[in-house]
Write a protein that binds this DNA or RNA. Structure first.
Lengths: 190, 190
DNA sequence: GTCTATATGTTGATAGAC
DNA sequence: GTCTATCAACATATAGAC
């Protein structure tokens, strides 16, 4: 790749995220990153002294992005269904690239992570669930969406469908994942 | 012809399964096994020459167990709801032990696995889905269960709820998982 | 900020004795 | 079937030059 990264740190974060989504946190090394970015492993350690720091940085980046999405998604003129579609399409994109959700990926390695990162991960997941819950709550209120569960529980059901859906898709194929997405929409349609 | 496995081999399989459920496939080593079983790492290699062989052995054991469960679950006198409870309680047990479903765990490491193991994993998952699908199908037929989706799709929805549910429970706690389980039951109740 | 060079431990694995 | 002994390869990590 001839694209000279304007910011090595950003590139490391981007590649680290990808490696977690494709191979898992405990399956990649700093060598994978340094080779791909054509830098030395010491350069990676300069930006992220330890692998845990890299993981923390990646999760921080996600928290930041969802914070932005949470604010943006409240914009008027977008229906609750469209908002829900924004979430679903994120997972569909992952699925298409043979990646899985970073939360699900890191979850397998949860017990190998330091406490500080566990806490950060909890923050991220509560933020994601909170955004989905809010979308569902508003959609239910204005009659656009309909479902028997509370918005909190419905957000749990939808997010587990999506997270494990992309995991499953790796093995059984994309067709099953697409059927899951269709059902999610059908279940909340009034 | 069934060869009786040695106790050690069984112990390695048991412990290997546990390590995958607790720490993930790429996070444990043969040293973890040999230390815990108080044998030398060479002894582990005797039973499973490579780590992939161990993973294959673990998946094979699961396939065998689900084959037995698939046969047993057809026994008369058990309602479809009770059969569904058998599945749910397996995940609840995992949740209680802070473990996650082995399929979900291995899924993160999917792209680091040899083709032969990927195929085996596909076999296992189709078997599990098939059993759940059959339970749902029969329950729907005799009016015991009711849901708008096809049995196949509903099995996908339920299994993704459960698999990601135990993953989530590690982070957000058992309460969310229990709410998911309750909803699964409610959704299929007629 | 990136490099060279190096340290130190771990990993998965094997050969051959008992 | 288990052991001792040993291995090359790789992992994470740091010191100090440029």
């Amino acid at each position: 790749m001839t694209v000279r990264p304007t910011d090595t740190k950003e590139e490391i974060l981007r590649l680290g995220t990808e490696l977690i989504q494709v191979y898992g946190y405990n399956a990649f090394s700093y060598a994978d990153i340094s080779k791909e970015l054509d830098i030395k492993n010491a350069a990676v350690h300069y930006h992220f002294p330890g692998k845990e720091d890299l993981l923390a940085g990646i999760i921080d980046q996600y928290i930041q992005r969802y914070k932005e999405l949470g604010a943006k998604i409240n914009a008027p003129g977008i229906t609750a269904k469209q908002k829900l579609d924004v979430f679903i399409s994120r997972y569909t994109d992952l699925c298409e690239q043979n990646k899985i959700c970073i939360i699900g990926s890191v979850c397998s390695d949860y017990n190998t992570m330091p406490e500080s990162v566990k806490t950060k991960l909890g923050e991220l997941i509560e933020m994601v669930l909170g955004i989905v819950e809010k979308v569902l709550q508003q959609g239910k209120k204005n009659g656009e969406l309909d479902f028997p569960e509370t918005a909190r529980v419905k957000s749990l059901l939808i997010m587990t469908n999506l997270a494990a859906g992309v995991q499953l898709a790796r093995i059984t194929g994309k067709k099953d994942y697409m059927a899951i997405c269709k059902s999610i929409i059908d279940q909340v349609s009034s």
